[in-house]
């Protein structure tokens, strides 16, 4: 009976923790489907435990009522036959059912007034020790954690079907794929280097400028004059001008030349905005410009990009 109850508790705990681990993948991957599937199991177990407890309480109540009636009958009989029953001691009187339960499972400290009775006969530098029982709730907690530990090892290693770290990861990625597919479906195709267009509205350019100052200015100068990276204010481009080329360069980077890929850090829309802002820098003539690099890019030559441009910049390699 006892061990079955413990088993239920472990199962409940194990289930809670697996549920928890999924919930912990925070906000984005929390899957309502999974929670719904787990719910009946948990509910069944809660109901089972509640039912069992109710049964136990009811049984105890019946026994108590029985005892009470029995005592009552005995004392009535005694009165009739004129026998005086021994008076119950104060301690026995306080020894009610709940006191017993409390002492057995919860707390059983000897009161301070009576601790002389349990003071051990040894002392160390004046320090005495009492012989109080182990706090029962503490012992029970210890036992429960041990049972939980065995249950955990069983579930994940000794026979249960608990997922390995790797399996958890695969599940997480699979679920994310589904969610992304659901989120993206029905929306317009994402912006990429094949369909990107230059924006001209002031709001977008303003946002583009903010991004520029935050992430690009470090290498390309506050005003696009070029420092580590090339100058954006002249007509020369190393990897092609125009919004599509600029977008591509931002997105994938040119690692061998020092330009990193930004696609993990900037959303396509942000790359579009900052690319559009960069286009507006042409001809601004900031102080301390870096020498031109690459080749002259003319917008009208865009269709003809297969033809190499003739004019080599003075500073290009």
């Amino acid at each position: 009976m006892k061990s079955k109850k413990y088993l239920l508790v472990i199962l409940l705990l194990a289930d809670t923790f697996t549920g928890w681990s999924q919930a912990s993948q925070v906000a984005t991957t929390a899957s309502p489907v999974d929670a719904a599937q787990q719910l009946p199991d948990i509910m069944t177990m809660i109901l089972a435990i509640a039912g069992a407890s109710l049964f136990v309480v009811a049984m105890i109540y019946i026994i108590k009522v029985n005892q009470f009636l029995y005592k009552r009958v005995v004392s009535l009989e005694a009165q009739k036959s004129g026998v005086t029953l021994q008076a119950e001691t104060a301690e026995a009187a306080s020894n009610t059912f709940w006191t017993k339960i409390r002492k057995k499972y919860w707390e059983d400290a000897v009161p301070i007034e009576r601790e002389g009775e349990i003071t051990l006969d040894h002392g160390y530098d004046g320090i005495r020790e009492l012989d109080n029982r182990l706090p029962p709730w503490w012992v029970n907690m210890f036992i429960l954690t041990i049972i939980w530990a065995v249950g955990y090892m069983y579930y994940y290693h000794w026979g249960g079907d608990g997922p390995s770290s790797e399996e958890e990861y695969k599940t997480e990625v699979e679920e994310a794929k589904k969610e992304i597919a659901a989120a993206v479906s029905g929306k317009a195709a994402a912006i990429d280097e094949t369909n990107v267009t230059a924006l001209t509205d002031a709001t977008s350019l303003g946002e583009g400028e903010l991004i520029y100052k935050n992430v690009c200015a470090a290498c390309h100068g506050q005003q696009g004059e070029g420092t580590v990276g090339p100058n954006f204010t002249d007509e020369y481009w190393i990897h092609g001008g125009g919004i599509k080329n600029i977008f591509k360069t931002i997105k994938y980077g040119v690692p061998e030349k020092g330009m990193i890929s930004w696609q993990a850090q900037l959303k396509p829309a942000d790359m579009q905005k900052v690319g559009s802002y960069i286009l507006t820098l042409k001809g601004t003539n900031p102080p301390n410009p870096k020498a031109p690099q690459g080749t002259i890019w003319k917008e009208d030559a865009q269709q003809d990009s297969a033809t190499p441009q003739e004019t080599e910049a003075p500073g290009s390699k």
């Binding site: 400290a109 320090i127 009492l130 012989d131 109080n132 182990l134």
Partner: peptide, 10 residues
């Protein structure tokens, strides 16, 4: 006095 000698041991 220390509350419980047995607790110390365990």
């Amino acid at each position: 006095p220390v509350y419980s000698y047995k607790l110390s041991i365990i």
